[in-house]
Design a protein around this nucleic acid. Structure first.
Lengths: 207, 207, 207, 207
DNA sequence: CATGAATGAGCATTCATTCAT
DNA sequence: GATGAATGAATGCTCATTCAT
């Protein structure tokens, strides 16, 4: 057990840093054991903190997980916003968005990738938090904004969005399992397939 | 709580009936609480049986789950096989496969659909059992068998398969959440998008 | 599981033989797992009989053990009686008694000796049943009968008997652990030591 | 039930006190029910502590037992060492050793003697821990060291040691059952008998 | 605020025992 | 009598959570 009684270590420097300490430990533990199998004890054991301290910051393991998911999503959102504002049409948006997502996924799981692949793809995928739903809603809005008028009413944008997201999730899992992790290949394949699909569906980019 | 409605007495239930009772309770509990959170006690509590009885039939929660997953997959595989043998080309295969999957998904979750939707899409999705992996491998083989030679080496069939599966999974979730559950619409959209996508990727159906 | 539904096997031939079947299985199981660790289930599992049948013959594992101990002691008693009637004096009694005991011990544990030595020396040692106490009482009476009058009141025959028994028990354990199991050597050493001891204590054989 | 008589509150008990509380309860429970039959719950039930607390101190019942056995043997060993260094020859060693052992046995079981005698002679006898084996090995070495050269090869020191130990064990049991518990009588009888025995076996003390 | 020992509810699992067949 | 599935009490153990310090 790591102990830091003198309050001089990096970890315990600031009181508020404890929250961050717990979050980091939780991320590592979740990656190692899986969210469901992990226990609060596992998390605090990876921390110089005492068991009781956990409860000064979080009510339960679920709350940490939620915070972690929010955290990931929060960091992804500005990236997606940047993609949005830089995109000139549907194609550039889609290509940039897939690349951004796969890059993010790869970065988030960098440590797990180095170690092996247990419980990979933890963050950013397979998590149905309100924040993730909000991101999906943003993507849907982005798509709709870029579909030409002719498409309105003709296609079901919720399904199209689901398809885009499904491709990202599933391909993301496979990408993480492969060595080397090739973000470019995954991005290109996903974007090619999705773009061709929607185009042939009769949807044209607005711009 | 599942009860012996015919009032023939607990003992009169045949052995096989008890097994079925447990399986049904487990299916319900898994749908309600999620597989990981559910406990053996949760399952037997949903049963008129005693705690110990569970262990006359299954060694652990995982074994019930496995039985349930095998069961679902076992029932889906012949359906997919029928689709395979009836298909004359890539398009008919894809259309029939998506329809088959969405139909199956809808049927499997019929009860959950009626009740509400917590932990929906339990069966057939989000489940990485060996059986499910085998099904995915079958689909991949089906796709490869139907891609023309020109596609060989040009496309990454693992990624393409992942995309097909991802579309199915994600769209399946949305389909189950909508009322009415419209299998036809989901199938058509998924198939249209995927087929256009792969076709534009330069892949032609062999036949 | 061994099953013998046709009632033709040696095992199930006679109804009363079931008791014997259980006793034999119990002896083997106790030797393998130890009395405390063994369960009723372990015993019936080594039997072609059903769980419930056990309770037609014994109330509990302890009762079987008791029966087994009684059985052993019952078989040892006539041997000791023979020794008693053949002995002409203290020395011939002691020598014959130790030899008889070590021989019996070796025979009883023959199977365990062949297999290895788990939970050896089960029968005839370390067991404080009423029967064993009776045997000890017999030995004490035998000793007293052979001590000369001068010894009466001078020595504590209970302690002397305890010493004789203690030597037998402890040396018996060591004898069983050695290979080859040498009954003669153990008997001679035990008898020499005990006889010299009591003789020097001022006790002379009556005859 | 062991209680915190000083009324300082459970929390005020020092950690070490809880460990001691558990050890004492375990000693009592083992004496009452026997080591094998006793359960962890039996132990904590004899304690004002909660079930989980047990596991803050010991991993299992076996670990408590081990701690208890080590404890007893640890306390007996220096006593035996003192006997060894004070002894001038075989006779003084044997007499002092038996007296030391019977005294120790009487002290260890003082409480049980007062209460009654179920599962008596728990400590120091009938317990085949590594520590007890080490003590027996020490005794054997002590004996060999005190046997004259002429005895070497002629007698089996393992058997002789077994005899010495067997006498101690069995006579110890009887001693504890008698009232009053007479350590001197037991020691004298055991030593007389054993010494006469080995002497007549042709063994002379070295000194 | 931090600590970490104590808590006791809860879980998986085993097992002796019963009893309808 | 024999059967063996059902029973449910009991066990070892873990864990989230509390709270005195």
């Amino acid at each position: 057990m790591i102990r830091d009684t003198e309050q001089t270590g990096k970890r315990a420097q600031s009181k508020a840093a404890n929250r961050q300490t717990i979050l980091e430990a939780a991320r590592a533990v979740f990656a190692r054991l899986g969210v469901e199998s992990a226990t609060v004890r596992d998390i605090i054991r990876d921390t110089p903190l005492a068991a009781g301290t956990f409860y000064n910051y979080f009510k339960s393991k679920e709350e940490v997980f939620e915070a972690l998911a929010v955290d990931s999503t929060t960091r992804f959102r500005p990236i997606l916003a940047e993609v949005r504002s830089s995109a000139v049409d549907l194609e550039t948006y889609i290509r940039a968005a897939y690349r951004a997502y796969f890059t993010f996924l790869s970065d988030e799981n960098a440590e797990a990738i180095k170690l092996g692949t247990p419980h990979m793809a933890l963050i950013g995928v397979r998590v149905d938090t309100p924040e993730m739903k909000a991101v999906v809603a943003e993507i849907r809005a982005d798509l709709e904004a870029r579909f030409d008028e002719a498409a309105t009413g003709k296609v079901d944008t919720e399904y199209i969005t689901a398809a885009a997201v499904g491709i990202a999730r599933e391909m993301g899992d496979y990408m993480l399992k492969r060595r080397p992790v090739d973000v470019e290949a995954a991005s290109a394949t996903a974007a090619d397939l999705f773009l061709s699909g929607v185009t042939s569906l009769g949807i044209q980019s607005k711009l």
